[in-house]
């Protein structure tokens, strides 16, 4: 990818994403409903709400540590990501710690990820 970012190619504007029902969309055109409906079709994956609790600088340049409260049990999960890494916020769309960098590197329209934002994440469906 000519993006200058080490993020996967599917985050670059124009990438083609296949939803669970087979429909194809560009990554920048995805809506909250696309993820919810795809998860409903999925036999293994379910959508969890992950609320941003903290965003801290990492010791690694251009990385941030994002702490989430995941699911109904509010489990604490921290991830270290590039500051341009886009998360999908419910009802809002792509958001990152540094939206300017996301837009510059990936051309993906993006807003600022903030404490309190509720992101879409995945967990396994209960297989019991």
């Amino acid at each position: 990818a000519p993006s200058g970012s080490s993020l996967p190619a599917y985050f670059i504007k124009g990438s083609i994403i296949q939803l669970a029902d087979g429909e194809l969309k560009h990554v920048e055109d995805l809506k909250t409903e696309d993820f919810i409906q795809s998860a409903e079709i999925s036999s293994e994956l379910k959508i969890d709400s992950s609320t941003v609790e903290r965003i801290d600088d990492s010791h690694t340049p251009n990385f941030a540590i994002v702490q989430f409260s995941v699911g109904e049990h509010r489990a604490q999960v921290s991830v270290e990501v590039q500051v341009e890494y886009p998360f999908f916020v419910f009802g809002q769309g792509w958001s990152s710690c540094c939206p300017d960098r996301t837009t510059q590197l990936l051309e993906l329209p993006c807003t600022k990820l903030s404490v309190g934002d509720v992101c879409i994440s995945l967990t396994l469906k209960n297989l019991r």
Binding site: P8, A9, Y10, F11, S15, I16, I17, Q18, L19, A20, L24, V27, L30, D34, F35, S38, S42, L45, I47, D48, S50, F68, V70, G71, H73, A75, Q76, V77, V79, F87, F88, C119, I120, S121, L122, T123, L124
Partner: peptide, 19 residues
């Protein structure tokens, strides 16, 4: 042109199951 599955885009945040 590569086609990516929708779930590639979503972080997999799996809390430790306690129940």
């Amino acid at each position: 042109v590569p086609v990516f599955p929708w779930h590639s885009l979503v972080p997999f945040l799996a809390p430790t199951q306690s129940d």
